[in-house]
Structure formats: C-alpha cells, structure tokens
Design a protein around this nucleic acid. Structure first.
Length: 579
RNA sequence: GCUCUUGUAGUUCAGUGGAUAGAACAAGGGACUCCUAAGCCCUAGACGCAGGUUCGAUUCCUGCCAAGAGCACCA
C-alpha cells in the first residue's frame, strides 16, 4: 500500500543515511502545521542534542544531505527540516491505489488471525433504553468495524441483565399497575417497553422510599431467582417484550450480534467458580458473603456471592468470562461499558486473572463517557430519561423538515432515514471516547458544520459530479488511471494537491483509530477531508475544466468519494447518492 | 475521607514536549448568470490556578480549585 506512512519510513531512512547513524524513525516525523511548510517535517532538537549542535545549525547542516526518492524539495526553516513530496507521483499512485482497492482502501492486516470479542449494548431487560445505550451501541459497532478494517476477526457479543434486583423492581411496579399491564398486552412493542420503563421507575422509587415495598421487592427477587411459578409467567412475558424491543433498535441502528449472553445463563457457573476458588483462598468469607479482598492489590473489596447465597454481578461476570473464552477463544475481550464501572472492572479483571490465569491481559474495559443532559441529570431510576428512539425519531422529523423544499428527490423517506441516522451517529461518535457528551434537547443533533449530514452532502455532491460527467468510467477506469501517460499529472492546483496528501493519510487514520479503539479519530479525519473537498469544490471547476484536466479531476473526485464512503462505513454510516 | 475521570473561545469539541493552539455552533461581515446554499470565503474570541522538570510545558510531575463517578452484599 502506498501511503504517507511509507513515505515517512523512506524519509527516515534517508535521514539516517545522511547522519550515518540510525537514530530517526518514522514516528519522529511530523505533519507541519501549515501547508506552506511542506508535507512532512523533522524537528531537529533531539538529533542536535546528540551532536552538540543547536537545532538550527543541525537543520542547516543536514538539509543538503538527505536524498529520498519521493521528495521534491527539502528546506531548512529554523530548527525544522521540511520535506515537500513530489505530488505528480503521489497523485498517480494514490489515485491508482484507491481506484483499484475500492472498498478495501485503507484496510490493513494488523490483526490477522486474531479474534477480538467486542461486548457492547447490554441493556438490561425491563429497563428503559436511553441515549446512553445509544452511545454504547454506536461505539461498540464502530469499534468493531474499525477493528475489522484492521484485519481482526470480530465477535460481537451482548450481555444482558435479565435477572437481578432491577427485574424485581420492575415486576413489582407491574404488579401495582395490573390494569395497565393487561391493557398494554395488546399494544405494540414500543408501548410495552415504555410501560416497563415506567414500572421500573415506579418500583425503584418505592424501593427507596417505602420499607414495605422494599421488603416485597426483595421477596419477589427471591422468587424470580428460585423460578417460583407464581411469578414466572409475568417474568417471561415481560422479558420477551424487552428483548423484542431491543431487537428492533439493533436493526434500526444496523447492528447485529453473534452471541447474546444473559445473566441467567452464567448465574450458576459464576457461583460455582467463586465457591471453588473460595476453597483455594482467592475469595474469603465475610459477614456471610463471599468477597474478593481487592485491598491486597491496591483495589477495593467486592462481594461476589451475597449472604443470600446468590452471585452478584461480580460472580456472574466470572461465569461469563469462562463461557466467552470457551466459546470463541478471543485474543481479547473489550467490554464497552460506561465510566462508572471503571473501578469495578479493575477488581473483576484482577480476580479473574487469579481464577483463570489464561485471561491475563486479555480482558479490557473500553470506557466511554456519559451522555448528559444540559438541562439536568438523567436517570432511568428516576424515569427522566431521553429514550434512544426519541432521538432517532426527532432527528428524522427535523431532516424531513429540512427536505421539504427539496426538488424532485426520489425515496425521500429512505434518504431521510439515512441522513437522520448519520446525524445521530456522527454527533455521538465524533466525541472522544472518554469525554462526556453534553446533550442539548433543543439542538439534539446537528445538520451543519461538523456533522453527519455534512459528510453525506459532500459525498452526494461528488456523486452528482460523476453522474453529470456522463461517463463513470472516466472517473473510475483504473487501468486508464494507472497508465503513466494518463492525465493525472495535470493536478497542479494547490488545493487538489493537499487533497491528495490527505487521501494518502487515510490508511494511517484507520490504523490509529484501531490501535486506540477510537472512532472519533476516523470521524475527525473524514470531516477534515470533506472540508478540504468542499473548499476545493467551490474554488476549482471540475466539469468545466479543459478535457485533460477534467479527466484527472474526475478521477480525484471519484477516489475522494470512495474514501469518504469507506470512512463512513467504519462509523456505521451509510451514504446517499442524492440529498 | 480515599480512588478514578475531566477542566482549552460565549457554547460544543479537536490537538501537541517544539513553528502563529485547530474546528463547529452562536455573533458580525461577504461572494453566485458557474458542477446540490445541509455549501463556500472573511472578522472577532480560549489552554482552571500555583509551583516543578526541560533549551522549550497547554501537553509530563506535584499541590490546589471546580465538575462528575466509584468506594460490600444493585447492575
């Protein structure tokens, strides 16, 4: 693959040749802040130090001695050496490469023969599905796609809490609202899910405020654990409602899971693992419960089996890990979970390491930040949540509003679906993983600036140009483009040269996003590429250019479109041809 | 109290041990007989505070301040 990364390696080699020592690596080369400075730079501070020269002296000393094939000019500017790449060659190779690789442009084999399990979504049944879950799913899916582009085999897993106190709270709430429960049975999944969310909030509230209710809920919880016949019918029915509702959301978001795990299926094995290792001394008895003494490892203690004899979330997680490793033998398991469980995961991973030494270094908590409301706190416990579906529906409404004036656009509804999904997905994924997202109900998703629709619009524009060129082959015939005599060398405008450099950076962006498990890196790259293209689009004519230039520019447009599409696919965003 | 995370323009976010800290939104101004105005161009505006390490710190370290989260039988 011909990328800027490769050129950096060659330049580093050339620098080392000039120094007659091997001290510079590709990682020491940076991209300069301004295009006028060149395409790749070497700050000379570090190597100057080794030789006793100042950085400025070093830059001047070295500048005439570096010879790299791809470099058109090398200039010293203060303590920097700036390299300008030969754009004619670069354009030729990059355009040919993308035209040839198409959907595969940017993928690498870093993770060849390795399986990573990405465990995400995990909404609990019987609880509301809010925008926090949405961020989780979008993140998990995007990370999965990015890792796939990095050559990993990905197993998408979803671990759902279908047993535990929250269920009892919900079912207690359901029991208090028999009438509504009966009525909702005949309604659609959405109404059912909403009813369960309300019942959960109601049960939760009473659990905290009323001793009587608290006791009843505890009793009910025991019955569920013991599969008591008096509660199982309601339990099974409502569980099914929840799962059905979730399935609809996964479909809408275009996510599929290879394996759905449930707490109910690891409940037994989790308990057994803890008890077995209690004998070995990894766990200890304390106040009637089985705990792991985290303090020994600089962490905190946690209960794995409660004094009722039931495994807690902790205990169940051990059973889950065993099952996951046995079923898929993943190199790594990434648990996409919110920041509130950061400390929890440290304890679990430590305990797991002792119980199952093979898990060492293979379990990781992939944490993402909160989605907060600007207007105040959000809690499914309190019932004041923004539902995931609300956001999707709202976004679509707004898109349809914007599209009202659109002239003869076919498939308006399908386009609105894609555009609104793109808006929601991008607005969430563009944020750094660790950052909280401050969510404004009034401006929930954006359609201007750094937004999903902006990227789709850019793509649609490119497709429109290609359509109007009346010759797709003109842009896409890779044989012609690869021909050294083709007119690619006519791309001499500074804006298009910058675009070519940007395109050559794409593989690096994919690799980096994969290494850091960070979709926002891909999002950022795409926005920058789109921005540069739009600037170019307004300044430089494509269809009205002279024939030989026109062909080269069409080829460029074609590969930009391809790259935008590839990048969006990593984020789980589909393109539209027109909007 | 202890631990973790986060403090960058009015707002929401990028970013880096090095060249003038980038965008978007909002504000103000501008361009079209031209490939989609969900677009483009211009203007104004920011590294919480205090020390330290360094030739150089917004970035690394320490302390403080602020916000959020976690700290035994919830998930």
């Amino acid at each position: 693959m011909y990328s800027l990364e490769k050129i950096k390696i060659n330049i580093a080699d050339a620098i080392n040749d000039a120094l007659k020592k091997k001290i510079v690596s590709a990682a020491d080369l940076i991209y300069p802040p301004k295009p006028e400075f060149g395409d790749i730079s070497l700050p000379c501070y570090a190597i100057a130090k080794l030789s006793g020269k100042t950085a400025v002296e070093m830059a001047e000393f070295l500048v005439g001695k570096i010879f790299a094939e791809e470099v058109a000019s090398t200039k010293a500017l203060g303590p920097f050496i700036n390299f300008t790449i030969n754009k004619t060659k670069l354009a030729q190779k990059v355009i040919a490469e993308i035209a040839e690789a198409k959907n595969e442009y940017g993928v690498n084999a870093n993770g060849k023969n390795k399986t990573i399990m990405v465990e995400f979504a995990h909404p609990n049944t019987h609880k509301a599905f809010h925008i926090g879950h949405l961020r989780n799913i979008l993140t998990g899916e995007a990370v999965s796609r990015i890792l796939e582009a990095n050559g990993y085999k990905i197993t998408r897993a979803n671990y759902q809490g279908d047993i535990g106190l929250h269920i009892a709270k919900c079912l207690w709430g359901v029991g208090q609202q028999e009438k509504e429960y009966k009525a909702v049975k005949n309604k659609d999944v959405k109404a059912k899910a909403e009813f369960l969310g309300r019942a959960y909030a109601y049960g939760s509230k009473n659990y905290e405020e009323s001793q009587g209710a608290k006791q009843e809920i505890a009793e009910l919880n025991k019955k569920i654990y013991n599969q008591d016949k008096t509660v199982m019918a309601a339990y099974r029915a409502t569980r099914k409602w929840s799962l059905g509702y979730f399935a609809g959301i996964y479909k809408r978001l275009n996510t599929k899971f290879d394996r759905l795990y449930f707490e109910s299926e690891v409940f037994q094995s989790g308990r057994e693992i803890v008890l077995k290792n209690l004998k070995k001394g990894i766990f200890e008895l304390s106040q009637g419960a089985v705990i792991f003494e985290g303090e020994k490892y600089g962490l905190h203690s946690r209960v794995f089996i409660n004094s009722e004899g039931n495994p807690t979330y902790e205990g169940k997680d051990l059973g889950l890990a065993e099952l996951q490793f046995n079923e898929f033998r993943p190199e790594k398991i990434l648990h996409v979970v919110g920041p509130e469980q950061a400390e929890y995961f440290k304890v679990i991973i430590k305990a797991l390491e002792l119980v199952m030494p093979a898990s060492l270094g293979r379990e990781a908590h992939l944490r993402y930040g909160w989605v907060r409301l600007k207007e105040g706190k959000m809690s499914s416990r309190l019932g004041n949540v923004v539902l995931g579906e609300w956001l999707l529906d709202e976004a679509k409404k707004q898109v349809l509003e914007i599209m009202k004036g659109a002239r003869g656009l076919k498939n308006k509804d399908a386009v609105a679906d894609k555009v609104s999904l793109a808006a929601v997905k991008y607005s969430i994924l563009k944020n750094g993983l660790d950052k909280d997202i401050a969510f404004d109900l009034n401006e929930s998703v954006s359609f201007n600036g750094s937004s999903g629709p902006y990227l789709l619009y850019t793509y649609a524009r490119i497709q429109s140009i290609i359509r109007k060129s009346n010759s797709k082959s003109e842009a896409r015939n890779s044989k012609q483009i690869q021909n050294p005599k083709s007119k690619i060398q006519n791309l001499s405008d500074a804006k298009e040269q910058r675009l070519i450099v940007k395109l050559a950076m794409y593989p690096e962006a994919v690799a980096s996003a994969g290494k850091n498990y960070d979709p926002s890196e891909a999002a950022k790259y795409l926005f920058e590429l789109a921005q540069e293209f739009n600037n170019y689009y307004h300044a430089v004519p494509v269809l009205k250019a002279k024939a030989e230039i026109r062909m080269a520019r069409l080829a460029l447009c074609g590969v930009i479109g391809q790259t935008v599409k590839n990048g969006l696919r990593l984020l789980g965003i589909e393109t539209v041809e027109e909007m």
